[in-house]
């Protein structure tokens, strides 16, 4: 996993609630056996019509918008546990998703893939949407070390929560498996003192 560094970027607004994983990456694209290439099918059925032509109204097809930050409505990532949703977003080049609420599994999957979910309040979310609406080129800065998100145009700073362990992992670019592999002896000792019925 790549280490997560501080960056500035424009943002892509998706003011829709309950965006589920079937919208993020429809099930018919889950047939791959590698992690690559999912970005091309991110939001496939919103992005393209049945004849595979771009849907002009959809934000990813609008050249005015772009960037490494996706801002979405409440309860983002609900639905299935498919990690492909995180790979699709990451594969598209997005590093941060901002919403006022994330589905549990999605949040975990995102963090395991170096994608940072930032949860903000409803009011803050509205403020961010407004900032993008007013200026499509509005810049935002993400500073994970300081757990701070800044709307550069007006200097508004938003603090966000992330637990220490995950923060360390993201900043250093390592994952849970590295940690668990170090724990083998303790795991074996645990196994030896119990029975599975």
């Amino acid at each position: 996993m790549e280490a997560f560094t501080r960056f500035k970027s424009t943002a892509i607004p998706l003011p829709i609630e309950n965006v589920d994983t079937d919208q993020i990456i429809p099930a018919r694209f889950l047939k791959a056996i590698t992690k690559e290439g999912f970005g091309d099918n991110l939001f496939r059925d919103w992005r393209y019509n049945r004849n595979n032509n771009e849907v002009p109204g959809f934000v990813l097809n609008n050249p005015k918008y772009g960037g490494k930050i996706l801002v979405a409505g409440k309860n983002f990532g609900c639905g299935s546990s498919r990690e492909h949703a995180a790979w699709a977003i990451d594969g598209y080049g997005i590093k941060v998703v901002i919403s006022s609420f994330f589905a549990d599994i999605f949040k975990g999957n995102a963090l395991n893939n170096g994608l940072l979910p930032i949860q903000v309040s409803e009011d803050q979310l509205d403020m961010i949407f407004k900032a993008i609406e007013e200026d499509h080129q509005a810049q935002f800065e993400i500073d994970l070390e300081a757990q701070q998100f800044t709307i550069c145009d007006n200097g508004t700073q938003i603090k966000f929560d992330i637990d220490n362990y995950k923060k360390e992992c993201l900043l250093k670019g390592y994952d849970d498996i590295d940690y668990l592999l170090d724990l083998k002896e303790e795991i074996v000792a645990f196994e030896n003192q119990r029975t599975i019925h």
Partner: peptide, 20 residues
């Protein structure tokens, strides 16, 4: 409960998960 593919790999590697 359901898990993501990274967690599938964690269980493969250690029969454990890091959870809250």
């Amino acid at each position: 409960f359901g898990i993501g593919t990274s967690q599938v790999e964690q269980v493969f590697a250690s029969q454990c998960l890091i959870l809250s």
